[in-house]
Structures are given as structure tokens and as C-alpha cells.
Design a protein around this nucleic acid. Structure first.
Lengths: 344, 344
DNA sequence: CTGAAAGCGCTTACAG
DNA sequence: CTGAAAGCGCTTACAG
């Protein structure tokens, strides 16, 4: 096996180009381009000869040249808080499943939940002149908002809906409604001393908690001391720690709403270690309904959010707009489902 | 809020270009380019004037033009089985944390564990003329191997090491060694009727199991009927189902090695439901040591794999090569750690 | 430290 | 169905 150390990249020289293919197949570059991009506009004979030349030469089209000369970059930029997050994985898969078959490349970047990093990421992405963009959330810096408006590309803001008018298109759910629904469910089940655990505390977690607490307040059951949050990332381990802290301050709790399923897993594990029976002594509920939530013991009551569909729908909206369609419904609320299981 | 429906992308006309900035700041395009890419080679006065013009005009550089004219695309292509997989998330984060600060964009695509999809994905990525590429695994189609050799860009094959010579660079661990280590550990602990559960069954899972079973065979303890695998994706739910099936055929098992932690979670949950005490009646071990494994009850014995570091190291190797360095060590074995906990 | 010329590899718009 | 010309917006290589 020969090593390739030292070679660091293809200098222009020596690359096989469209004209090489054209020369070999005895047609113009224009015709090769058509054979590649609009094969139906080229005679079958020519198409075959071109294909043979491509194979013989090992021709690889150059996207940079294509996007510079053409009107499209065939690229979609996706801005999310973090690729290493079970929630966004599902969203990404939905986007990918629509974009990839349509011939669009996905440019992906993390904001790490920082408005500032979001701004610089979007600026950077704009230099690729993506044909469309998907951005997480409705909140962004004003300067970014202006940049995006100036870029004038189709844009879908995802995850949440209803907190403010989107820049262009919007698909997601109402996190405050979802939080409220969980609170109502818990009240119906008879819980009265209800705690709340939150991590990460991005806008959507905050709205979830706000919606939840507002309903408790209506019943006169809100108590700030029962709400424990941190800006640390949401993990199973953290769920256990937070529950321990919360119980220390509020030994009399009869239920806890966790802002994320992984926190809820950690809380359930902590209860197991302390021999606290769930839900008999303490009910626990989560949010997002991740894959393991139906399997854990006790199975976890949670809010199922349409993560995959949010990604898929966002990408489809983009594709439709790129096909010239005018969308009647630029804002789509995909809704959520409360999954009542054993834990609460 | 004005809607932007109907606008589908920036036609070349009307874009602010380098020359516009040059004109406004009274220097040549060349100098603006330098002010942008090698600021230290331009006088501070000029740099300031150029920056003012950029701000005033809202100039956004065009990467397509840059990569067409230049020798670099400032893009790294990453080929993984699936973005929505906790294992690869960590790898991706490692890659991202090195590439993003270095000014490299990440192009990411899924093979969905298919050699065929891998081939077409790599062909597609090559049209972007990425400066480097990271590909999962050592096995690939011969045609792809040739394409990659012809492209002559730095390439790092990741995740596993030692099964065959890499095309260029390589970082990962030996999955058969890791499987073997787990088998030895279980034998030391006194387990003798040991089952194996596998899902997905990509090359690396296969090698994990092979390494594990080979050690059992040395002790005369291998039994095909105790190995249950499926090509379905690895999930918590599947872990429970597989364990149920395995116990049906082998009620006398005293331990089970699960090829992935999520299978192990499912197996533990299933034991809880059946009141099988872990590890007293049945020991359970996993692989990858995901975040929750230390928290579940009983805490999970697993093999910790350096996922983040694999990604980080691969990206660093690429960066070093792109900086012209010749690597003394093109193959890096990052090793693994057996985490002995309560479950086995 | 700064600039004029040429060209990267395609596609658009116009013909025929 | 096919082609000749021009140009997309940058950077390289060469000067000075």
C-alpha cells in the first residue's frame, strides 16, 4: 500500500474538466453540461458517448464552478445548538432524509446554545450562499436578523412556534402549551406538591417551565422553591443530582416534572437507589419521549415531540419554496402528544 | 413583518463583490482579498478602510469563487453510518471542535451502514473537492478506494484499527481486542454460560463479537446457540426483546454481553420486569460506555471507547497534513478501558 | 506594502 | 438537439 503523505490537495493543474470530457466525446462543453444536468434534452447517442468519456477519464464535476456560474449552490445550511444531542439528531435525520435525495448538501453547525456563536455561524454559512437555511428557534440577534433578510433566501425557523413572528417560515410546537398540558395532567392525577427540574435552560426549556408553572399558579400551587434549574447540559447523571438537591429542600414533594427525558431517567435511578417508589411516593415525568422512555421501569410519562417530522417538514417547506411554490401556510404547528405511562 | 415568499435565491446580479469593496475603499481587489485572508500583509490604514467598506456594503465573501480560484475548498467531508446515533454524535463533536475553529466547514453524510450508499456519498462529496475526508471503517468498495486514491486528498479512516491497512491515515481501536477483553473479564469473574446479544451487526459489532467468542472458545465455552444477533438498529427496546428470546432458548445463562450499551439498558430493564437479579442471577455487560451507563441500576459494566478523541484526533491529523506536515504515525490506536461496575 | 492580468471550471443567455 | 461567447467572484503568480 502506497502512502500519500505530502500530497495535500488537488491543484487545478491536472484535474479532468468538462472540456476534457467534451473533447473526448466530440461535443461541446455545453452539451456535456446538459447531458449531466438535463439528460432528457440531449440525444441518447450523445448521452452515451459522454458517459463513456466520463468513465474513461474519471471525471468529477466541480461544485464550486457550478455554483459560481449557476444560480444555485445546492446547499442547505442547518444551524442547531448541538449535533451531539439526542433531540437534535432526530431533527437532523428528518432534514437529511428530504435534502439528500433531492440532491442538496447539508452544511451543519453548532451554536452551543449561544446567540453570539449563532451569529458568527450564520455569517460564515452565508458565504456559501446556501439555497436555503434552517435555524433553531425564533430568538436571534438583530444583526443576524438583518443579514438573513438581506440574504433573501428561504429560511425555516424550527422547534418552537408562536412566541413571535418568524422571519420567513416556521415549524415546531408550542413549548409553553406542552408544559401546560403536563401540569394539567399532573393536577388531574391528584399531585399537589409538584417540583420542576430544568437543565440547559435554553429558550424552549424556559418556555416549557413557564407554561407548566403558570398552570400550577392558577391552582395556587406554584412555589419557586420547588423549581430547580441549571444551565448545565441535560444528562442522566445531572438528573440524579438535581433530584437529590430538590428533595433536600422539599422533602414533601409528591411529583417532579423534568424538562428532558434524560433528567427524568436520572431522577428515576436516584429514586431506585433511595428506595423511593415511583410513582407511589414520588411521580416523575419527562419531556421529548426519547427511545428508552417506554422501556425504563417504571415506564416514563412524557411529552412526545415530533422531532423527526419537524426536520422533515422544514426541509420540505424549503424544497417547495426552491421549486418556486408560494406556501399558503408559512407557519406550521405540528403539535405534541402526552404519553401517560407508569411513572406519573 | 414582511414575508419573503417568492424570492428563492440570490442571482448573481446585485450581489456585493470584492470589487465593490475595492472601489469603495480606493484599493485594488487584490488588496481587499489580502486584507481578508492575510491581514498582516496589509497596512493598518488600508485594513481599516477596507473593513469600513465591508461593513457599509454588507459584503459577504463568496466561498465558491474562493475555492474555484484558490487551491483549497476549506471543507472537510465526513462520512458516517448515521447522524442520529449516540456513538457517532460524540465522534462528530470531536471532529467539529477541531475543524470549526480552524475555519473548515464540515460536510456530513450518512451511509446507513450500506457500502453502496457509502460509495455514492463519497462520489458526491468528491465533487466539492474537500481538502480532506474522514470515513468510518476500513472496509469499502474497490471502486471507491480507487476514487479516493485518485482524488489524492488526506483521508482518515476512523473507529477501528488493525483489521487491514488503511488507504492513508487511520485512528480508532481494535474491536476484537475489546471484545476479547470483556470475555476475559467475565471468565475471571466466574461466569461460564455466557450469551451474546448483537444488533446492527456492522463490521465493528461483528469483530467485537468475534473477539469475545474466540476467547470463550479457548476455554471451551463457546456455544453458537447462545449468540443472538440481528441487523436491526440497536435500541433499548430491542435489547429487552433480544434478551427475552435468548433466555427462551438458554434459560441457564449466567451472563450476557451486549454489543451496545442501549441493548444492555433494555436487557437490564427486562430483567427488572422479570425479577431476575442482576448480576446475582444474570450478569449483563455493554459496550461504548454511554453517558447513562454509570447511573442505571445496577450500574453497567462496559467498555469505554474514546469516541470524542477518535473524532478529535482524526481531525487533527487532517489539519496537520493540510499544514504540510508528514505524519510519523499514520495509524493511531487510541485504546479502550474496561469499566467494571455492578452489573457484571 | 500594493496592483494588473489571467484563469479556476462551470452555466447562462442567446443563437441556430 | 447543439454550440460560441461571456462571465460568475475570487486567487495565483508575477511585478514593482
Amino acid at each position: 500500500m502506497t502512502t500519500r503523505q505530502g500530497q495535500t490537495g488537488g491543484r487545478s493543474k491536472g484535474r479532468v474538466t468538462l472540456s476534457d470530457v467534451a473533447r473526448m466525446s466530440g461535443v461541446s462543453a455545453m452539451t456535456v453540461s446538459r447531458a449531466l444536468n438535463e439528460p432528457q434534452r440531449v440525444s441518447e447517442q450523445v448521452r452515451e458517448r459522454v458517459q463513456q468519456a466520463i468513465d474513461a477519464l474519471g471525471y468529477i464535476p466541480n461544485r464550486a464552478a457550478r455554483s459560481l456560474a449557476g444560480t444555485r449552490s445546492h446547499t442547505i445550511a442547518v444551524v442547531i445548538p448541538s449535533v451531539s444531542n439526542a433531540v437534535f439528531n432526530n431533527v437532523i435525520r428528518g432534514i437529511y432524509d428530504v435534502c439528500a435525495p433531492a440532491g442538496y448538501e447539508m452544511l451543519m453547525g453548532n451554536t452551543y446554545y449561544s446567540v453570539q456563536q449563532e451569529s458568527s455561524l450564520i455569517s460564515k454559512f452565508l458565504t456559501h450562499h446556501p439555497d436555503g437555511m434552517i435555524v433553531t428557534g425564533l430568538d436571534m440577534a438583530d444583526s443576524t436578523r438583518r443579514q438573513l433578510e438581506a440574504a433573501a433566501i428561504p429560511l425555516v425557523q424550527i422547534m418552537e412556534v408562536g412566541t413571535s413572528a418568524p422571519l420567513d417560515m416556521n415549524v415546531g410546537i408550542s413549548h409553553s402549551d406542552a408544559g401546560a398540558a403536563m401540569a394539567r395532567y399532573m393536577l388531574e392525577r391528584g399531585y399537589r406538591r409538584i417540583g420542576v427540574l430544568g437543565a440547559q435552560m435554553d429558550y424552549r426549556s424556559q418556555r416549557r417551565i413557564q407554561g407548566f408553572v403558570d398552570v400550577l399558579a392558577e391552582g395556587g400551587l406554584a412555589d419557586d422553591r420547588r423549581v430547580l434549574t441549571t444551565s448545565e447540559p441535560s444528562t442522566v447523571r445531572l438528573g440524579g443530582q438535581l433530584l437529590a438537591d430538590l428533595l433536600l429542600r422539599n422533602p414533601d414533594l409528591d411529583a417532579v416534572f423534568c424538562c428532558n427525558d434524560d433528567l427524568a431517567y436520572g431522577a428515576i435511578y436516584e429514586c431506585q437507589r433511595r428506595h423511593i417508589r415511583v410513582p407511589q411516593q414520588l411521580a416523575i415525568a419527562g419531556f421529548n419521549d426519547l427511545e428508552g422512555s417506554a422501556c425504563i421501569n417504571p415506564s416514563l410519562t412524557s411529552i412526545q415531540t415530533p422531532l423527526y417530522d419537524i426536520g422533515k417538514t422544514a426541509a420540505q417547506m424549503l424544497m417547495r419554496r426552491l421549486a418556486g411554490e408560494v406556501l399558503q401556510q408559512p407557519v406550521v404547528d405540528l403539535g405534541f402528544q402526552l404519553r401517560a405511562r407508569e411513572s406519573a
